[in-house]
Amino acid sequence: MKHSYLDRYSNLNSPIHRADPRLKILVALFFVLSILLTNSGNLLEFALYGLIIASLVIISRIPPLFILKRSLMIIPFIVLISLFLLFDRTGLSAEYSGKVLFRGIVIKSYLAIVMLTLLSSTSTFPSLLQGLQRLKISKVFILLLSFMYRYIFILVDEAMRITRGKRSREFGAGKWRQIKSTASLIGILFIRTYERGERVYSAMCSRGFDGTIRTLNTIRLRMAEILVGFALVTIIILVKIFTHSHAL
């Protein structure tokens, strides 16, 4: 498999990795929300949030360089927005200049994406799904997601194999021919996938599948974790209150 980068650090062992996925999802949501609700000019608040996230990264034992690399993904969007702000500033908030507003957006989206990277690299996808299911997300949807996740690797592998074969066969071919052959490969991959889906379904039926999947319940909310989560939320709220009275 050439996509081990997917779940690369989610099997490490740290307090954050071990924590209940429900708790992680809720705290992450709360944190991102409070980042979003920060005034664009309040640099002190941003700095304190950055400090909290940085300490979480250290606790999680995920290489900071990895987080740094993943978080660069928002760059294209930032460029896009800055282009808009360059051309036309009508209808924008009068409270801040375009520069402060832009700086605020960049910091917010950066902090949020680091938080999200942290969430996804400290939890395996199945555990996130278990968490979502306990948070009352529709069971059918969770089932759909777990199927999808299982087959992504198989199909992406197949797609990579097909691409490699195609490249070695049509070295130097014209652009149009390349486009056409890639499209027909996707079409064929679809048909194969569809037929695979039907086979999977009949295999499941013959093993007694009745629409629900029963799994062991491995997540358990421990009191200590609840306290830590609660403490984190309290710290975030305190940062908000403190920086509002000491705005830079």
Partner: peptide
């Protein structure tokens, strides 16, 4: 559900193909 799950994985895989 199984069929849709597999099809979702297909969409993922289809997005892997690059067109010049």
């Amino acid at each position: 559900v199984p069929l849709m799950g597999v099809m979702g994985a297909f969409i993922f895989a289809a997005q892997m193909f690059n067109f010049p």
